[in-house]
Design a protein around this nucleic acid. Sequence first.
DNA 1: GCGCGTGATTCACGCGCGTGAATCGAGAGC
DNA 2: GCTCTCGATTCACGCGCGTGAATCACGCGC
Lengths: 316, 316
Amino acid sequence: MRVSSEDVAQRAGVSRSTVSYILNGHGDRFSQATREAVERAVAELGYRPHSAGRALARGQSDLVLLVLPISPNSQFSQMADRLTEALAEHGLSLLMCSSTASARSFAAVLTTARPRAVIALSQLSESKRTVLRSAGVRAIDIAHAISQPGGPNWSVGRMQAEHLMRRGYRRIAYGRLTEARDDVLLGAREQGVREACQAAGMGEPQVITVALRADADLDAIGSLPLGTGLACYNDDTAAAALAAARVIGRAVPEDLGVVGVDDTPVAAQTSPRLTTIGFDLPVSYDRLAQLLLHHDPADTEFADMGECRLIQGEST
Amino acid sequence: MRVSSEDVAQRAGVSRSTVSYILNGHGDRFSQATREAVERAVAELGYRPHSAGRALARGQSDLVLLVLPISPNSQFSQMADRLTEALAEHGLSLLMCSSTASARSFAAVLTTARPRAVIALSQLSESKRTVLRSAGVRAIDIAHAISQPGGPNWSVGRMQAEHLMRRGYRRIAYGRLTEARDDVLLGAREQGVREACQAAGMGEPQVITVALRADADLDAIGSLPLGTGLACYNDDTAAAALAAARVIGRAVPEDLGVVGVDDTPVAAQTSPRLTTIGFDLPVSYDRLAQLLLHHDPADTEFADMGECRLIQGEST
DNA sequence: GCGCGTGATTCACGCGCGTGAATCGAGAGC
DNA sequence: GCTCTCGATTCACGCGCGTGAATCACGCGC
């Protein structure tokens, strides 16, 4: 239930103007008692001014735009730009916010921007889901959608494992990322690896954690038996694994096979060159825009199979 | 000069309601002639509905929030999160948009979100500057601010060059990034290198371009005389240079010294380990928030010296 | 008792837009 | 000529808020 400054005024027993004045730094005109009453009412009701009203009255909103140089190679950058253009054709504007910001500031953004929808490329935490629900804002969780069993990320994992087996590795391991905020993606990829192992009659894959910090990663890589094929969460993880293997003297691809995901530039620069899996996000930007304009997009509509392609390097 | 639906109505010789109906997909109620008149007026005046009014009337804005998983190691991610929190305490919300999106969609974002200010971490193109100016939105160009002569980025370049000289390289080269959207940053760093060379009585540094694509980079690295110290724009550029050097058989650090900038995780994973320069953005987030609330921040206020620190690797 | 400041509070308008309900106008039917 | 219908257009309200101007209450000096 939306709470307006009218509600606050009523509860504090004053007029709406008084509330507005006090909340906008002109409180010195009022008595101590009035100020306190208003502030108490605000706190009790959890009032936050409606951004559109504010913006309309003042002529400018409370948004601050941060223009970020997203690396031009990143999948995200491409996606953001295409989405921006696709949405613009339908009169919608795309803004971004960091997925690592706190749930509280996320809530603030929601009540300030009051967006038509939220698209999440990384999994939304439970607290943010709650915030979204109570704000009545529709969310499209792409990470979740493309991580269904049988979906693209799952296929990526399967492809990694099957490739490693084809190259003759008889033990398979999985390299997780420590700071795995992208739980769903990781889960789906790992699950794909796991099922491929089962299908081939191998045991459960050994799972190690890669921290992207040399000191911490040496032990993890060292714990892998010779002849292991390591499927990594992404290219960064794989690159870190390669670096650790080099330090502790594991020969790649002989003693250890490594395969990444994403086909980022880093894959082409490692030594030996990384085998990786390129992978287009199976999202039709225009369709996404259409869905945002209408209603109730089922998440599963995005679970179409994306194209995965193996890029053979020298690490397997 | 703001153009409202009233202006459009007047020009088309109809009422404001008619304009509103036609623009919101209820045009079938009107005659062909009226529709065309309205559309012509819209086009001629370049009318775009004011988002706040729309949002107020409809209860939701035309913004779409994209929640991006920004890599947790990136400087930008940290900055975005800290800024988000700092601004939240002052009732402001931080949203991001891609710096690589078109100027047209940037204009759309501005007129839709009507933000209080724009903070740019990458240099703003001239067309975007124009858009900002005509929208009357204040912009704080941090990239520009920290790229003043004598400022942090300039110091980074100097430090790179001086380090290379200290390590005994008698020729200095600079490795630019091809897709250098961050012109100012690059320019300042390169200029720092250039001036350090002059100060030491060396000639102009040789400048090469690194494309982050193996095939293209081999020639560039091959063109460097033995004994060159290569100062690179950033760690990615440096990592690509190292990869190219390995392929064409240049010994690092003997034949070629390489130093990067940013102290990213990639620097710790190259072989040999990259020498790099760590570098904190000299921005006080809270001060930035304060400035946004008041007025007329001089860009130069951010040009305080940041802390640069040399991280010695094995590549120099 | 009356006018007069002065501090405290409220009135009332407008920001730009979307939309249900009302109005208008012209032609059809009697 | 008068009503009735129906397509075309406009009226008028409200969304939530900020703020200049008006109002109010109250104590003071004469």
